[in-house]
Design a protein around this nucleic acid. Structure first.
Length: 874
RNA sequence: GGGUGAUUAGCUCAGUUGGUUUAGAGCACUACCUUGACAGGGUAGGGGUCACUGGUUCGAAUCCAGUAUCACUCACCA
């Protein structure tokens, strides 16, 4: 049967993925084997696969597939995250497009829309992962808002509240005026932006024409000023402290106060204090008992305190108030400056510091074990450098604002029964709440009098339970699954979410199971485009992974994305890498095509084939250890490169050429059998990286019984490496390279047979010489005691080799080549002798190092003698 | 501004705790070859004062100090 000239991935991918699914290979149940568990970083339920997911999930699949082949019970748990803000924003947007405003809907109506949206778009990303070949246990797919998962989230809230680790309070929080919710510190991105510094003067009361000039980037908050602050030891202003000044436009009187917080160098040294709209000003306000005037509505427009600006957006007011200040003579000047402004990670709206009543997790004590167990290596980070970042954050951890003014998510299980701030209870159900409230209030509380908190919990307050709750470890404590699969083994994720997610999972792991959630954390880099820009939807510089798969094949894309992405390094991605991956799958395919074209006859095995087999056996064993070592160190790219070279260079370029029968010649049975079994071993090493082509060829190489699939095959065993065949090969390869060079320099076609003379005793002859005859295309190989006249020559390992000239030869070129080699060797000798003539080196360095240098010297001297002799002859 | 890490070939990176050649790999590049597995191929080759300056050492890409540039991260300078 004709075999296609190139590998055609699409058909194979569909066929084998379906086959693996049908066989139930992806599914795991606890058994006697060692467990190997990975939980997927759950993507946003409404998300679409991007290059970052590709990188991340390819690595996970490689680890999982290899673990499976090592005989472990591999379980890769997939799932999605409800991603409260992001998803709610999408739903609101979709409704708006349909002419429906969120504010017109009840909570129940909105959630109905949201769930419809989730049903429709949810899980697209998981389907896309299948195209990549991801061997997830799809029967275990979880969603952070599944009923049982939600129950565990609520239980944890209640438990932490009861332990006093969750509290409710009024704090300055990061307010997202677009999403209309508070966000955590980690969800605020600070960007440097060009802005302007406005110098505004305030008239001092009781003086004729004395003014204090302040500098601010936010003139629109002037109406909320409740003080002017100067440094207590600032001589320019000390006499004004205690006086009153008039706020422009508002015409309110506010005091001049002194505090060391003020930087005398910045601006004018006078600071306007707006306690309601700046974290620091808030603290100053607290310290100096200043009133707080809230100027903004939740959506970022000004409220009644904004006087005639009421209802206008904060940024419009900034422009308008500049004009007004200028026209009334309050604006002294403006300056361009660069300052940092906080943006919402989700909506990109400028964050407004806002005083509000929120729920917080008190982090300090919870974080301690999580810090300790990473620092002492119980949990390992790859690369290790991220430990530093982690420690820094954990040592300075702040309380975590977990309430969000949204509907999509886990509703906070707090119930209010009265008007005082303390009139609430935390309970799982309305019934429990009634009972608790009755007890707390000391009087009967009617269910209808209870109102549940309107807010939901931060998404991360559910995803921090992911490694536990996907096995129902909290709702069914100590169930067989959590006992078997937990702690999980490796977590593969992006460093960006180290604090959002990784740190908090570690915290939850120790708090709830008293044990680590995973043993290793592999941090991937950011996928960037050729210009070094982060790939993003808005830049439009991210290729569609599915299109890439269709173009290059899933295996090609997997190789392309892994070929050069060490842990923690950013990956500058270019589709040419996928091309390289595709070429590699094609190379493997064609190796198969060659092997399958051979016809077996009962002929004697060629000596060169015996030599080749012995060499490859040992070469394979050698590289296998390297690959295993790379895997142990999470050096995935290096492992891939090692198998890449083993297949391409050692197997295809050398081994197959060494055993290849002549055109239309048959092959002997032993050699073919050994070759097929080498091929099988190679396919096993390839399988984690290129699952599809390896499975396809596994079945093409031999007829297999049902159920004999490479996916479930065992990883090759490590064998002891014999050095002799390897060094023989190295020498032969060098001789062959020299022969090829001679052919090239003298334009001798590969087909023309050559004679090779070796100046060495005939006792040096070995069966390995047969390889030289075959690979060098020699008509004869002879050991001689004298040098051969009129011949090209070269030296390998101190032995001289001769190939008699053909009809013509370029003597000058030959001379030049020898000259160059001579020069190099002399230079080398000089550096070695330099060391050896240094008394300090000879006496100071270890004997072994000195001996080594002496040997190098002797070798170089011998080589120089040979080369000079050759030159003299020419 | 604080902290951390980096700087090796055109690009992406190794370099295993200072001494196997005068520093390696993959890709890219150059020349030539190629009807017999694969042009998505083969052979050969070019290309680097290991960021800079000092220091430690018999010996430094490797250790130390400083400088420069970059990245990440934290932070309340309006």
């Amino acid at each position: 049967m004709e075999i296609a000239k190139t590998y055609e991935p699409l058909k194979a991918e569909e066929k084998w993925y379906q086959h693996w699914l049908n066989q139930g290979y992806f599914h795991s149940e606890p058994d006697h084997r060692e467990a190997y568990t990975v939980v997927i970083p759950p993507p946003n339920v409404t998300g679409v696969l991007h290059m970052g997911h590709m990188l991340n999930n390819t690595i996970q699949d490689v680890l999982v597939r290899r673990a499976r082949m090592l005989g472990k019970n591999a379980c890769w748990v997939p799932g999605t995250d409800h991603a409260s803000i992001a998803t709610e924003a999408k739903v609101v947007q979709k409704l708006r497009a349909e002419g429906i405003k969120k504010s017109d809907l009840s909570r129940e109506e909105f959630l109905k829309h949201a769930f419809e949206w989730k049903e429709k778009h949810g899980g697209i990303i998981l389907e896309q992962l299948k195209k990549l070949g991801a061997s997830c246990d799809w029967e275990r797919t979880h969603f952070t808002m599944d009923p049982e998962y939600s129950e565990s989230v609520i239980n944890v809230f209640i438990d932490l509240f009861n332990k006093g680790k969750i509290y409710r309070g009024v704090r300055m929080v990061n307010w997202d005026p677009e999403a209309l919710t508070a966000v955590s510190d980690e969800e605020v991105l600070y960007k440097e932006v060009n802005s302007r510094l406005f110098y505004v003067r305030y008239k001092i009361i009781g003086e004729t024409d004395e003014w204090l000039t302040i500098a601010t980037t936010r003139p629109e908050t002037i109406l909320g000023d409740t003080a002017i602050c100067v440094h207590p030891s600032d001589p320019r202003y000390s006499r004004f402290v205690g006086k009153q000044v008039l706020v422009p436009i508002a015409n309110r009187e506010i005091p001049v106060i002194a505090d060391e917080y003020v930087d005398m160098e910045f601006g004018t040294g006078c600071l306007k204090v707006t306690p309601a709209h700046d974290t620091n000003d808030y603290e100053l306000g607290q310290k100096h008992n200043l009133p707080s005037i809230d100027l903004f509505n939740d959506n970022g427009t000004l409220n009644a305190n904004g006087a005639h600006y009421e209802g206008q957006d904060r940024f419009e007011v900034r422009k308008a108030i500049e004009t007004e200040l200028a026209s009334k003579g309050y604006l002294v000047k403006t300056e361009d400056i660069i300052n940092k402004v906080g943006y919402s990670e989700r909506t990109n709206a400028v964050i407004e510091p806002k005083l509000s009543l929120q729920w917080f997790v008190s982090m300090k004590e919870l974080a301690q074990p999580a810090l300790d167990h990473v620092m002492n290596g119980d949990i390992q980070f790859h690369p290790e450098k991220f430990k530093n970042t982690y420690r820094h954050w954990m040592e300075n951890v702040k309380d975590w604002c977990i309430s969000r003014q949204l509907w999509w998510g886990h509703r906070i299980p707090a119930w209010y029964y009265g008007d005082r701030p303390s009139d609430f209870v935390v309970a799982k159900t309305l019934e429990d709440a009634v009972e608790a409230a009755t007890q707390k209030a000391g009087m009967a509380i009617d269910p209808s009098a209870l109102r549940q908190d309107e807010d939901v919990l931060d998404t991360w307050f559910s995803s921090w339970l992911w490694p536990i709750s996907v096995f129902n470890g909290l709702t069914q404590p100590n169930n067989p699954e959590i006992q078997y699969y937990y702690p999980t083994n490796d977590l593969v994720t992006a460093p960006e979410i180290m604090f959002f997610w990784v740190a908090r999972m570690i915290i939850a792991g120790y708090e709830y199971l008293g044990d680590l959630p995973f043993k290793n954390v592999y941090y991937t880099g950011i996928v960037r485009d050729k210009l070094g820009r982060k790939m993003s939807k808005s830049l439009g510089n991210s290729p569609d992974p599915i299109e890439l798969i269709e173009k290059y094949g899933a295996d090609g894309v997997r190789v392309g994305i892994l070929i050069s992405s060490p842990a923690g390094n950013d990956l500058p991605f270019d589709s040419s890498q996928c091309e390289q991956g595709r070429n590699f799958t094609n190379k493997i395919w064609n190796a198969f095509r060659l092997v399958s074209s051979w016809e077996v006859r009962e002929i004697e095995q060629a000596t060169s084939s015996k030599v080749a087999i012995e060499w490859f056996e040992n070469r394979f064993a050698q590289v296998l250890s390297e690959i295993n070592d790379n895997f142990d160190k999470f050096r995935i790219s290096d492992a891939l490169m090692a198998i890449y070279k083993l297949v391409w260079d050692d197997f295809c370029s050398w081994y197959l050429e060494m055993i290849k029968p002549g055109y239309e010649q048959p092959i002997d049975a032993i050699t073919l059998e050994r070759t097929i079994s080498f091929f099988e071993d190679l396919l096993k090493l390839l399988h984690p990286f290129t699952p599809f082509v390896s499975e396809e060829l596994w079945h093409s190489l031999r007829d297999r019984e049902a159920g004999n699939d490479i996916m479930m095959a065992l990883w090759p065993q490590v064998k002891e490496v014999q050095q002799a065949p390897l060094t023989d090969f190295e020498r032969n390869a060098e001789i062959i390279a020299n022969i090829r060079t001679i052919r090239k320099n003298n334009s001798i076609a590969t087909k023309v047979k050559l004679d090779l003379f070796i100046k060495a005793p005939a006792s040096m002859a070995s069966i390995a010489d047969s390889v030289l005859v075959k690979m060098g295309n020699l008509s004869q190989l002879e050991y001689v005691s004298e040098k051969v006249e009129k011949a090209n020559s070269f030296i390998v390992d101190g032995t001289e080799y001769f190939i008699p000239f053909g009809d013509s030869i370029d003597l000058d070129a030959e001379k030049q080549k020898i000259e160059e080699e001579l020069q190099y060797t002399k230079g080398f000798l000089k550096s070695v002798q330099g060391k050896l003539s240094n008394q300090n080196f000879v006496s100071g360095a270890p004997a072994q190092v000195v001996d080594n240098e002496r040997k190098k010297e002797a070798d170089a001297l011998a080589k120089i003698a040979l080369l000079e002799a050759k030159l003299a002859e020419l």
